[in-house]
Amino acid sequence: MKTLEDLKALREKLKGDIKVRQKQGTKIIIGMGTCCIAAGAREVMSAVLDELAVRKLNDVQVQQTGCIGMCEKEVLLDVIRPDEPRITYGNVKPADVKRIIADHVVNGRIIEDLVVGKIEQEG
């Protein structure tokens, strides 16, 4: 049974984690336009959230963006590790999420067979 009272305990527990979270951490960005949602973006994002929680990757930020115009390759998921190029994965299914997080987010190995784009970051 979950209640709002649980949040008091969570607040105490998470106090120590705040310092660990940095704004410079890895970002995962998922398209949430109409086309993306119809293609399954919510399920992919839910899988990302669940996997980050299982692995306790508290410093990874999950963000959304609108349609970027590659609707035929949706669901699109971008990974940006600090000081590395922005990698766009296409046709992502919830089943691909574990591999993207384990190989790329954690270990820095790009999964070439899912990549549809690469953008060098400035600065």
Partner: peptide
């Protein structure tokens, strides 16, 4: 309940 520093982006919270 969570205070200013903790929000829905924390895995334990979501």
């Amino acid at each position: 309940m969570l205070g200013d520093e903790i929000d829905f982006s924390f895995p334990e919270v979501y």
